[in-house]
Design a protein around this nucleic acid. Structure first.
Length: 903
RNA sequence: GGGUGCUUAGCUCAGUUGGCUAGAGCAUCAGCCUUACAAGCUGGGGGUCGUAGGUUCGAGCCCUACAGCACCCACCA
């Protein structure tokens, strides 16, 4: 047999066997099923490590529950990923020399479908290569005909419930993608930019400042200043050290100002000056706004000013939405191109002056600037402002960027379809919140629950329409002024809305569209398959997806879509940075597979992670775990070598080593089960790893070598090793399966994947093996200390049974005699080992060191016992501490005698 | 501005309800190819558990404050 497991050759064969055995297929049973709808990856690329991270977690759960006898369904799928796929696909077409604009919508759609289908197949193969036991017969695509009906049905139901409306509202507009995108798809990028201070002429503030140069000003965190202890009338203008200030009231500066005293805010002059980072939007201004209590501008509310360059008049209005401490405390209001301004505009009934069109060009309303791009207009406006541009400040600010296209977002008025989330009679927000607050979903890690709740509390109406062709065309039909929601065309003259759904409108329904399309849930009566058992996803799509799924299930069933929600972290490189193609720090799963195999990859992704916490990942880590799979492979070789034949179950377990390993294995097996049940997946893997290597291989298999001729030992090795394979199988399915298949005496089923999760052994747990281990370790220390780890040595220890004697002799490579001459005494916990050492002097310094350490421990032990510890702690602990102390003292006596003896 | 997470060995991280000498992998030092495994084995070195307080017989763990890092949400006119 080969020294190494040939994963490259064997893994695909094993996966084919699982497929043949229908391991991943849902089996019927009376037990409650384990259903997990897998997050569909975007069918426009290939699997990356983030996917692997999630899928491995899901497959571990799936294999575990399947082995426990639950009908298990890991339901796979692929996402059409609306805007992202459209961007990718159009880029691909352009690269092939085809202009997407020349193709008809149907044609594009068809070609794009084929493209996705092709990618989906490729990605499916990748999922299989990492061992995912999904039920492939139930794989769906988010644009799948079998799901679409349910998606449309939901929309139509919402329409009938009055939750859908069309409205001209401000949206995040992506010029590059020519579509609106949702809030969550907007990213902010830090950029250097300018803050321009612009004067609006028309009215002038008539008050005169009082000169006060003797004040000593203290700056606060905001733009406010303090004069401590001074009482000055609010609204007074002061000139201090050459700059103008206005005395501010406390009420409106709260909570920005934290100290008592007179607060001053800078006063920027006697004309109205406002600051902006987007000066071109002044062409669309329809008001200036100030805070109603701002003493600087209170008297001006209701008056009018002229917009620079265009010269039309706009009113000065008051709204609490203005922060008086930012900039000059005056906001230019452009309702058509800014979210806050839109709100102010709606509140005050202002005109919406659209000066930027959907191509990012200035409209006719921009007068002489019409036709220019936003950037050109900005430049020209600045040039033309002349002395009305009173100041320019360089600042770093955050610019909204499209998450998919990476282009700058221009807020824009646009006709869109909206889902109302707070209709009083059917309040989706409240429904979802109630389910969450009632704890209907257990979220891992727990503290994410608050984040989800907060998101729902702040939820606003959702723009569900996109101006794309790749997606579900909204099932709204119009004929003149008539409008209807219907899946199929209501008749010849009806025209369908061209917008498509936001991709999350369909993927948000994933759990029930798929489970119902798989024939497990009729969407009306209750089903054990819905709500699903568990959902696993990366924390980055919490708001995108998890919340949307909760919203939809709340709407359709007033229930949750899943009972458990597990978030895994994101994969980062060794330095903690996001992996990306542009940075070149990404790790390709397929490279790792080729180099280390699926098992090492799986284990490396799981151990040392925590729910919701990002994972710094490196190829080195996988390499480390590939050593473990190799270790296991070699353990199987040893067992195979020592056995060959089937072991017979003995009537009674007699050997101490057998009882010991049976007991240990049973405990660990139970603990691994408990950890998996409570989603402590990394901890389960860690425990299994630790046990297998450091207990099973390092100790038990060494004992087994000594006991190999005992029939009982063969049996015990067989059952415990099978338990080892079982508990490792969810994490490293391939190699455990390969071992199972080659060791006939383990087999009860065709494959390990079909075995049941079971291992029991009842015992009182008492054995002397721990003592044997201590003795062997003590001997090894002596041997290492004298620099002769492999030379034979005579030793003597009290009270060794025949078995124990054999174990000590076999493993420590010594001869145990009843009596030896002039021994070196080495203490171990609870006793001493007599070793026949000719040249003890070499060993002396080791003994001295040990003595010193032991003295320190005795001191701390005594200190502990003489404190209140002995009175207040658990008596059992105190007793243990006393035992420890007496053992340590015995060791000290021994060591001192020995050291003196050596001289 | 609001929130969350992290800070433990040179590096990457475990450490489940407070309780044996705080662990692992990688790296490092010494020795060993001992017939399952050198991708290994044996033995060792290396840590004031971010800082400062507090609760407790006892704190890496609980509480308070602070610092640094990372991320999320909102705002940035």
């Amino acid at each position: 047999m080969s020294q190494f497991f040939n994963f490259e050759e064997e893994e695909p064969k094993i996966y084919q066997l699982w497929l043949k055995r229908n391991v991943g297929s849902l089996k019927s049973s009376s037990k409650d099923p384990f259903v997990l709808t897998m997050p569909p990856p975007n069918a426009n690329g290939e699997l990356h490590l983030g996917h692997v991270f999630g899928y491995v977690t899901m497959d571990i759960l799936g294999r575990f529950y399947r082995a426990k006898g639950l009908p298990t369904l890991l339901l796979p799928g692929k996402d059409h990923a609306g805007i992202q796929t459209q961007v990718v696909y159009e880029k691909k077409l352009k690269a092939e020399g085809i202009d997407p604009a020349t193709l008809a919508r149907e044609e594009l759609y068809k070609k794009c479908s084929e493209f996705c289908l092709d990618r989906a197949g490729y990605m499916r193969a990748q999922e299989q290569s990492i061992g995912i036991t999904a039920d492939w017969d139930k794989e769906f695509f988010t644009l799948d005909e079998r799901l679409n009906r349910t998606v449309y049905e939901t929309f139509i139901q919402m329409w009938n419930d009055g939750l859908i409306y069309k409205g001209l509202r401000i949206v995040n507009w992506s010029v590059f993608s020519q579509t609106a995108i949702s809030d969550v798809e907007v990213e902010y990028q830090e950029q250097k930019g300018s803050l321009w201070f612009i004067r609006y002429k028309g009215v002038t503030i008539s008050r005169k400042p009082i000169k006060k140069s003797e004040f000593n000003l203290q700056k606060t965190s905001s733009d406010a200043m303090f004069i401590e202890g001074q009482k000055l009338p609010i609204g007074d203008l002061l000139e201090i050290n050459g700059a103008n200030y206005c005395v501010f009231s406390h009420e409106i500066s709260d909570p920005l100002v934290t100290r008592d005293g007179t607060v001053l805010v800078p006063f920027f002059g006697f004309d109205l000056i406002t600051a902006t980072t987007r000066p071109e939007t002044l062409l669309g201004d329809t008001a200036l706004a100030v805070h109603p209590a701002d003493p600087r501008y209170k008297e001006l509310v209701g008056k009018k000013v002229r917009v620079p360059l265009l010269g039309y008049e706009i009113p000065i209005i008051a709204t609490k939405k203005v922060d008086p401490l930012f900039g000059t405390g005056i906001v230019k209001v452009t309702p058509a191109h800014d979210f806050l301004d839109y709100e102010i505009g709606e509140e005050a009934g202002l005109e919406m002056r659209q000066v930027i069109d959907k191509f990012g060009k200035m409209t006719e309303l921009a007068g002489p600037y019409a036709g220019l791009s936003v950037n050109e207009a900005r430049k020209k406006v600045i040039e033309n402002l002349g002395e009305d541009l009173v100041n320019t400040k360089t600042i770093t600010h955050k610019v909204p960027i499209s998450e998919r296209g990476k282009d700058v977002i221009e807020p824009q008025l646009s006709e869109q379809w909206w889902l109302r989330v707070d209709k009083p009679e059917l309040n989706l927000k409240e429904r979802a919140l109630k389910l969450l607050r009632d704890g209907k979903i257990k979220i891992y890690p727990e503290n994410f629950t608050d984040q989800v709740i907060k998101w729902f509390e702040n939820l606003k109406d959702w723009n569900i329409s996109r101006q794309l062709w790749w997606g579900h065309q909204i099932p709204i039909w119009t004929k003149g002024a008539e409008i209807k929601a219907s899946i199929d065309s209501p008749g010849a003259d009806w025209v369908q809305e061209t917008d498509t759904f936001d991709t999350w409108f369909s993927s948000g329904q994933w759990p029930y569209t798929t489970v119902s399309a798989a024939g497990l849930f009729d969407l009306k009566t209750t089903s054990p398959y819905f709500p699903t058992h568990t959902m696993v996803m990366g924390r980055d799509i919490l708001f995108f997806w998890a919340c949307r799924m909760i919203l939809f299930a709340a709407y359709r069933f007033n229930d949750v879509p899943f009972k458990n929600l597990y978030f895994h972290g994101l994969i980062r490189d060794e330095k903690g940075q996001k992996m990306s193609k542009s940075k070149g720090n990404g790790i390709e799963p397929k490279e790792m597979l080729k180099k280390y195999g699926a098992d090492a990859l799986r284990l490396g992704m799981i151990v040392g992670t925590s729910p919701g916490i990002d994972l710094k990942f490196s190829a080195k880590k996988i390499e480390g775990y590939s050593k473990f799979t190799n270790k296991l492979w070699n353990a199987s070789k040893l067992i195979e070598l020592k056995f060959g034949l089937e072991a017979v179950k003995p009537t009674e377990i007699k050997l101490e080593s057998s009882k010991w390993i049976l007991d240990k294995t049973a405990r660990v097996f139970t603990e691994v089960s408990e950890r998996l049940s409570s989603y402590a997946i990394p901890q389960a893997a860690d425990l299994a790893y630790d046990f297998v290597w450091f207990t099973y291989c390092d100790w038990y298999l060494e004992m087994m070598k000594v006991m190999a001729n005992e029939p009982e030992s063969k049996y015990v090795t067989a059952v415990t090793f099978k338990a080892v394979l079982l508990m490792l199988h969810p994490f490293i399915p391939f190699i455990t399966e390969a071992i199972y298949l080659k060791l006939p005496f383990l087999k009860d089923k065709e494959t390990l994947a079909e075995e049941s999760w079971e291992f029991n052994f009842n015992s009182d747990g008492s054995t002397n093996i721990e003592r044997v281990i201590d003795i062997i370790t003590a001997i090894r220390q002596v041997k290492a200390g004298i620099g002769a780890p492999y030379s034979p040595m005579n030793i003597s220890v009290d009270n060794l049974s025949i078995e124990e004697k054999a174990l000590v002799e076999g493993i420590a490579r010594v001869t145990v005699l009843d009596q030896i001459n002039d021994p070196l005494k080495k203490p171990y916990k609870g006793g001493e080992v007599l070793c026949e050492v000719k040249n003890k002097a070499v060993y002396k310094e080791f003994l001295v060191k040990e003595l010193n350490e032991t003295i320190l421990r005795v001191n701390s032990c005594e200190a502990k016992l003489s404190s209140d510890f002995s009175k207040r702690a658990d008596p059992k602990l105190v007793e243990e501490e006393r035992t420890k102390l007496s053992q340590l003292k015995a060791s000290i006596d021994l060591l001192q005698v020995e050291i003196r003896g050596i001289g």
